[in-house]
């Protein structure tokens, strides 16, 4: 298997990676090379959403992304949303509604919802946001509290 260096911007910092195998997944690069385990490893087949990261601001399943494909791109993981106002709104709403239990799917939801808010602002209705979150699976909450959190962000609390 061949390997070559790769340069990415991760959470606003440029990183130069030592030879990266051509088949290495972005998920493994951020978790094991860069020490950012907030991006969770679930199914590794693009079905659960736990590994969601932002690439140039848009949600991507990092388990299906090859690191070399995104050379030069800006990658944002849940750790990179620390100072982000949209990320803070999402976290506050999830906290207030108890929209998490085991926490394994949680970073994926935070990243995906933050990207939706940044991309579409308050133009999108809560229903549209919820539809777009359909690719993130949660087994603990039954989504009920997550739905409440999204409605809270929209000021649409029942």
């Amino acid at each position: 298997m061949t390997a070559s260096p790769a340069r990415l911007t991760v959470n606003a910092a440029p990183v130069d990676l030592t030879p990266v195998p051509v088949d290495e997944r972005l998920l493994d690069t951020v978790r094991w090379r860069l020490g950012l385990p907030g991006t969770k490893e679930g199914c590794r087949t693009g079905e659960c959403g736990a590994c969601t990261v932002l690439i140039d601001g848009r949600s991507v399943l990092s388990c299906l992304a090859l690191t070399h494909e995104f050379a030069g791109a800006a990658v944002t993981t849940v750790e990179g949303l620390e100072g982000d106002p949209a990320g803070a709104r999402v976290r506050a709403a999830f906290e207030a509604e108890g929209a998490l239990q085991c926490g394994y799917c949680t970073p994926g939801f935070v990243v995906a919802l933050t990207s939706l808010l940044k991309e579409r602002g308050t133009e999108a209705s809560a229903e549209e946001l919820l539809e777009d979150l359909g690719g993130n699976l949660c087994r603990c909450t039954g989504y009920a509290a997550i739905v409440r959190a999204v409605r809270r962000i929209h000021g649409e609390m029942p």
């Binding site: 950012l36 385990p37 907030g38 991006t39 969770k40 993981t77 849940v78 750790e79 620390e82 999402v90 976290r91 999830f94 906290e95 207030a96 509604e97 108890g98 998490l100 926490g103 949680t106 970073p107 935070v110």
Partner: peptide, 14 residues
Amino acid sequence: TFTVRPDADAKLRG
């Protein structure tokens, strides 16, 4: 209004 779980913040930040 829910009281906040003590593990919520750390879990939300990964």
